[in-house]
């Protein structure tokens, strides 16, 4: 284990009160700072529960049988209160509607900062910075019902980033967005990682959006980690599809062609790259 890990999950097991089965079971994960990690797996595999153990909603808001350890930047989540955790781990939820509270965008972005008692002058600077990072400075005075879904998701993410967390969790952030808007959000996340060095842990069904930017793909099933590796290694393996991981169709093709000896299986290729490679090999 390196000292630079931002997230360490060790032997984590969690069971909700009165639930027959463990939602997360003997789970290990180590994430170096600055990575984008995608967490995949069939519905109900425990992804949501796992995410909630990282930002402390479990065990601080939901209790249950908890064993093992989750550490963010070396500090135990269990032993840290929500005030500190909210500044270390940001959490973007699936439905943007249900995480915007205030009547204007800038007030909402400030929500977390107000809650931890940041002085006004400093708050102003941090809010403006977050608005700028997400390209929504022009929306500062808008009301939530005047925003599109994509804009709402950006506002929610701005509110998360204003807290300056080093680790941000995205729980199916694009499932309610159209593909182009979703693609824009993913590009934004990749840009933020570059600019701020923020680590992202993303739960997402639409793997095709993320394969190019993710460093690692982790697959969960029935509370356990069943696969882990680069997106290429996981998607090229035999098991990924049986766990409901959506292999992009061009990756499916590349995999078959690599198997036939017609393409290389080195790195994941985009449709255009695959076509180019086939033609170059022929020459």
């Amino acid at each position: 284990m390196k000292l630079t890990n931002i997230l360490d999950i060790e032997g984590l097991t969690f069971r909700y009160p009165e639930a027959p089965k463990e939602a997360v079971s003997h789970f290990d994960l180590h994430v170096p700072e600055g990575e984008i990690v995608v967490l995949a797996g069939p519905s109900g595999c425990g992804k949501s529960t796992l995410l909630r153990t990282v930002n402390g909603l479990i065990p601080h808001m939901y209790s249950g049988d908890y064993s093992g350890e989750v550490k963010v930047a070396g500090a135990s989540v269990k032993g840290t209160d929500m005030r500190d955790l909210s500044q270390r781990v940001g959490f973007l939820f699936q439905n943007p509607e249900n995480q915007i509270f205030m009547f204007t965008v800038e007030r909402d972005v400030a929500f977390g900062l107000e809650n931890i008692g940041v002085p006004r002058e400093e708050m102003r600077g941090r809010v403006d910075e977050a608005l700028r990072l997400l390209g929504i400075a022009s929306l500062a005075q808008r009301a939530p019902h005047e925003l599109s879904d994509g804009q709402k998701q950006r506002v929610a993410l701005a509110g998360v980033l204003a807290m300056r967390p080093r680790l941000v969790i995205l729980d199916e952030p694009t499932s309610l967005l159209d593909p182009k808007t979703a693609g824009d959000l993913v590009a934004l996340v990749a840009g933020l990682r570059k600019e701020l060095g923020t680590t992202f842990v993303v739960v997402e069904h639409r793997i095709d959006l993320l394969v190019k930017v993710a460093d690692r793909l982790v697959v969960m099933s029935e509370g356990k980690k069943v696969l882990e590796g680069t997106p290429r290694d996981v998607l090229f393996g035999e098991e990924a599809e049986s766990y409901g991981v959506a292999t992009p169709s061009v990756t499916k093709l590349q995999k078959m062609l690599a198997h036939d000896g017609l393409a290389t299986g080195g790195a994941l290729l985009s449709p255009a790259e695959l076509a180019r490679e086939l033609e170059e090999r022929q020459r």
Binding site: P179, S249, V250, L274, L278
Partner: peptide, 14 residues
Amino acid sequence: RVAQPQLVEFHRSL
């Protein structure tokens, strides 16, 4: 603002 299917993009690139 509609995405193109990957296999169509592949076809186009050949």
